[in-house]
Design a protein around this nucleic acid. Structure first.
Length: 551
RNA sequence: GCCCCGUUGGUCAAGAGGUUAAGACGCAGCCCUCUCACGGCUGAAUCAUGGGUUCGAUUCCCGUACGGGGUACCA
């Protein structure tokens, strides 16, 4: 068999060789140790948490080492292409602070290693495929779908491994004339790798994984398809060609690729190229609908969809912070000792990554979010909340718009000092938390405590009599103590605790009535401070109205 | 079915052949306190399982169970 002739028959229009491309895409000139990573999403328009998770690893690895992080669109599966998907990918990652240095972009492409869209790299793949054919490492296969299906049946009966290999690889040794005849007859063909693996006794190969350590697996022995009938490469071939030519040093991808790794190993060796370092990440999981502690990775789970966090009003910094705690087990410790450090200063390493899938924990996200938001200025929080509302809650947006100077101090209530309040989790929750500051949203939500039953009106009337907006906090509370005592309540909670029979209740119960009158709820930050913001007129109105509701 | 990866409290997890098996979230209780939050303290709760190897194994080896992934001209 003359491989050279076969190669020309199969790829008559290709005159470039791998060397040509080596020259077009020379090794990158980067500082020692710089890593080149990439994100290779398929343009389905659906991004999930896992994509972000992986993108973080890519981004950190590259930028921490002074390397390059680029975006490559892997659209070799034409059936799945969704219009506008590239913009979605870029936008949703940008929201979480992930930016690419190179590759596909909204305004075209940037970089010297393009094209960065696989559907535009056809000639390159074909040239590389031609090279393989020339070396006898690949061959055309004319098996039809039906043939393959029946072959699989046979294999099943024989309890043999499925796939095209060994004796099942019928087209492996077709003669040149045979091939030519079939092609001339218009038969469609795919290009298969001629695997060197021994199907009977596959040798053991060892591959180092930056996350998992040394992996031991059987060598590949399948004659996998590398070019489909339509001339488009499969993922396996595109991965090998692109990551070599784009000079990727570290391939970060999900663990679902682990079992096809031997194919990639063989392809790299057949091409005579050095492999990148593989980093196979664990998959993110969740609890199932029944609350069972089952791990699963359904793509459709709403909280796995990336847009979900934006819609739910989670601040991107909080999501980033949370993801990092999942990503690197020592992150929380680092954060605790560097509370104000920039997140990018954290020394990220693949060695500290978990090899088992983490369950997404909304509780933890909420907690991390509280800690994150407490460090953000009221000004920025307001902008964030408004921006969220403009997109997802127009009514709230209309309330907030233009009221920054009013809302700022509200957001800062109790947030200063050594023990700042950590009340805020996400945008809608933040607004709800402060909504009583807006007359159009003010409502009485909670009931006064039992201890004051029957005394509500008296408490509120007395409060109105003594209320003076210009009192300082001590004077103000002193007056409430006075009211409490005059009505038979303990001026101090401790007195009440000591002698519960002597009093109806204590000053806390009394002030609770006032709290509800002013805020509508049983829990709030400091009432005095709230009243300073609300202004005397509104305070009096609200107290009056609440007093009048008791007869 | 076969192949690959994984399994430390409810969750995220550190960890090493001999430890009282860290820490965080959540939960319970207490303290602080005009409520809540914050903060502080205390507590309940873990090495999937059966065999080996070993003086000793949660840690190493083998099997089992469970979970995840693959087994495509999807990625």
């Amino acid at each position: 068999m003359d491989h050279e002739k076969l190669a020309d028959l199969l790829f008559p229009e290709i005159d470039k060789t791998p060397e040509d491309y080596e020259n077009i895409y020379p090794p990158r000139e980067l500082p020692e140790g710089a890593k080149v990573t990439r994100l290779g999403p398929s343009p389905t328009g659906f991004m999930h948490l896992g994509n972000l998770y992986g993108a973080f690893v890519d981004e950190r690895l590259a930028h921490q080492s002074g390397g390059v992080f680029y975006l490559r669109i892997e659209d070799t599966d034409d059936k799945r292409y969704v219009e506008g998907a590239v913009d979605v990918i870029i936008d949703s990652l940008e929201y979480f602070g992930i930016a690419f240095d190179e590759g596909a972009a909204k305004d075209g492409e940037h970089g010297a290693y393009g094209p960065y869209t696989q559907s535009e790299r056809g000639e390159i793949y074909r040239a590389m495929a031609k090279y393989l054919v020339k070396n006898g490492a690949a061959y055309p296969c004319f098996m039809t779908e039906e043939e393959i299906a029946s072959m699989r049946e046979t294999q099943q009966k024989a309890q043999a491994a499925p796939g095209v290999y060994g004796e099942y690889a019928k087209c492996r040794d077709l003669s040149y004339d045979d091939v030519k005849e079939r092609i001339d007859a218009g038969q469609s063909w795919v290009l298969r790798l001629r695997s060197d693996g021994d199907p009977d006794e596959p040798a053991e190969i060892k591959v180092k994984d930056a996350i998992r350590g040394m992996l031991t697996m059987p060598e590949n022995c399948q004659d996998v398809v590398i070019l489909k009938a339509n001339g488009i490469p499969t993922y396996h071939f595109a991965h090998v060609v692109d990551d070599h030519l784009m000079r990727t040093t570290h391939v970060v991808r999900g663990e679902e690729w682990l079992s096809t790794l031997p194919i990639h190993v063989e392809l790299f060796s057949k091409m005579g190229w050095r492999r990148p370092v593989y980093c196979h990440t664990a998959q993110l999981m969740k609890l199932d609908e029944n609350g069972n502690k089952r791990k699963l990775s359904k793509r459709k789970d709403p909280e796995l969809r990336l847009g979900y966090y934006k819609e739910m009003g989670y601040h991107p910094a909080a999501v980033r912070e949370y993801l990092l705690t999942l990503l690197n087990s020592n992150y929380e410790e680092w954060r605790a000792s560097h509370p104000d450090a920039d997140i990018d200063d954290f020394p990220f390493t693949t060695k500290k990554m978990s090899t088992s899938g983490a369950l997404f924990d909304i509780n933890k996200l909420n907690d991390v979010s509280k800690d994150t938001l407490v460090k953000i200025s009221a000004e920025d929080l307001f902008a964030f909340m408004l921006e969220w509302a403009e997109e997802y809650d127009p009514e709230t947006a209309s309330i907030l718009r233009g009221r920054e100077s009013y809302v700022g101090p509200i957001l800062d209530l109790g947030r200063s000092g050594k023990k700042p309040r950590k009340d805020f989790v996400n945008a809608p929750q933040m607004f709800d938390y402060i909504s009583y500051f807006f007359d159009e949203r003010f409502e009485i939500r909670d009931e006064a405590p039992e201890e004051v039953r029957g005394d509500e009106k008296a408490i509120l009337e007395k409060y109105l009599e003594t209320y003076d907006q210009s009192d300082d906090q001590n004077d103000w509370f002193g007056k409430i103590r006075g009211i409490a005592e005059s009505l038979g309540y303990a001026a101090r909670p401790k007195d009440f605790k000591k002698e519960p029979d002597r009093y109806k209740g204590h000053v806390g119960h009394v002030s609770q009535v006032i709290r509800i009158a002013v805020t509508g709820r049983a829990q709030s930050p400091d009432i005095w401070e709230i009243q300073q913001i609300l202004g005397e007129k509104r305070v009096r109105e609200r107290v009056r109205a609440f007093a009048d509701s008791f007869e």
